[in-house]
Design a protein around this nucleic acid. Structure first.
Lengths: 298, 298
DNA sequence: TTATAGGTATGCATATTTGTATGACTTGGA
DNA sequence: TCCAAGTCATACAAATATGCATACCTATAA
């Protein structure tokens, strides 16, 4: 078997692929954890070796040549195969050392995760933890993250999910703000109440209205998806927020609003992982650790 | 876009692929033009990075583990894409410097090619020539060679073929050997003649018998596909050989046998190339050069 | 059993690649 | 128009990879 046609530096092809997809050498370098001069030289080396101009240099941009476009298709196939190689390898890894990526929402990141991570780092110093803080679901199958904490059951099949429990959500506000409201004896008397909203959809108000609450758009005059800002606006006395019980009860500046009306809702807590949970020691270790700690925290 | 899963050394995967396919580190190293310690370290580095044992070391052998087998599939895909990348690039190359591989038969290699290559090296010092000497057809599509000289029209489509002319094949022998034969006045009187055969098939004798010759197995008591040995055996007076006119007439120790019976056959000379002839400067240059020189030589 | 050929692993020297620092240039916003 | 930020290319120093040499081991043939 002749291997002549694979005797080039495959890492140069990788450089070409990521540079073409990211659009600049600087971005590609960052993406690969290398430096811009290295990427520049790798692409140039590939051009020299193949005798082809892959990019035209147009001002600050690199523009693919026709030849570049043609070769990019093959480089993509190579990258795709490389990804599958890497994912398959990760799935079989016997190494405890290495990186695990968590995807969590804002509130988990700030109120629940610090203690958990501190303890994990103590017990497993060889494991690097990367945390992606997002209120959007991360694509575990594409390995944007290994493990996610979510408040909804996962919809992607091939994921492994464990329900850890449920968190209770109350409305919280400052004593000052609540004392300035007119008397409220039942859930339908909430016209003067300001709830600091998450988005413009009516999801939350619809759910609560089905429970006998009487909320309208007028109750949601302040809207931000950034939950820490919600919290600060609440502390400024501008309204109440939906907040998990274990977090709200620990904050001395907050009190439950309308406690006699009961909690606003219950949300499940799911810990989700891709299939590597079955085969990758490290991911299994982190998953189990978080499951234990989080079950106790809520 | 996250590139996490392509951030490993692709060249280590290449090392794994070629080692797995070749069976030993030494063979893989040779195939890639590297050294055995380098291959050993690259495979070991991949194993360490991925946390997977890819090969069991069994005596002198490397035996793929189960994990290794699984990953090999992905490595193959990567290698396949790499090959296509390389071939596509080669097809677009604007470089005159570089390597061109020729596939030629024994006699061409020894009698026709040296002068042609010497002249080509003079005119194009940047072009490296690799010559594969084989009497079997090389697979140009798989890039075992770029250009082939053949005495039969190519059957693979997608190849470009140019007929350069025809060579005339005579029987040649030494004067001494021929003088010891009984008188032969026509082609059917050849029972005492020994022809040093190429193989055990009856192809050549069938063709000649159709022309009125009368050859049987007894005429082919010495058989070797190694044409230079045929030539030496002939010079030892053990028989006659089929030999191209331009080569035989130049050798003072040989004379045409039974010249009055005419040549044994005419064989076409084709110069064949894969599709890169259209796009790759270097291959086009070598092809044209050889076409010119060879047309004049026969 | 011995000799030979062929294979892998490892230490050290050398060659190559990568990172740091910097300059030239472009782009977008004030 | 000017300034700040971002981009690419290049020189030099540092880090890493590779080749050479060697030791050790295995398999095979005599």
């Amino acid at each position: 078997m002749t291997w002549t046609s694979v005797k080039f530096d495959w890492n140069h092809t990788r450089a070409f692929l990521v540079t073409a997809e990211e659009g600049t050498l600087s971005a590609a370098a960052k993406a690969l954890g290398l430096t811009q001069p290295t990427l520049s030289r790798q692409v140039a080396a590939l051009e020299a070796e193949m005798g082809i101009t892959l990019f035209e240099r147009v001002g600050q941009r690199l523009v693919l040549t026709e030849s570049g476009v043609e070769l990019l298709e093959h480089a993509r196939l190579m990258g795709n195969a490389a990804m599958h190689f890497s994912l398959a390898a990760s799935g079989q890894s016997q190494k405890i050392e290495g990186s695990v990526t968590l995807s969590v929402g804002e509130l988990d990141a700030i109120f629940r995760l610090p203690k958990i991570i501190a303890k994990l780092r103590q017990e497993e110093p060889g494991i690097d933890i990367e945390v992606i803080v997002t209120n959007e679901p991360s694509d575990l199958k594409r390995r944007e993250a290994d493990i996610a904490i979510r408040s909804f059951r996962p919809t992607q099949n091939d994921l492994i999910a464990k329900k850890l429990g449920e968190e209770t959500i109350w409305l919280y506000g400052t004593e000052d703000y609540l004392s300035r409201l007119p008397p409220i004896s039942k859930a339908s008397d909430l016209t003067q109440l300001q709830i600091i909203g998450f988005d413009r959809s009516n999801n939350v108000s619809d759910i609560l209205n089905q429970q006998g609450w009487n909320l309208s758009k007028q109750n949601f005059r302040l809207i931000t998806s950034f939950q820490m800002l919600q919290l600060q606006l609440c502390k400024e006395g501008l309204g109440v927020i939906f907040f998990p019980e274990d977090m709200g009860d620990k904050d001395p500046s907050l009190v439950r609003a309308f406690e006699h009306l009961g909690p606003a809702m219950q949300l499940p807590i799911w810990l989700v992982c891709h299939q590597e949970l079955r085969t990758n020691l490290r991911v299994r270790r982190v998953f189990d650790f978080i499951a234990d700690e989080l079950s106790q925290a809520v």
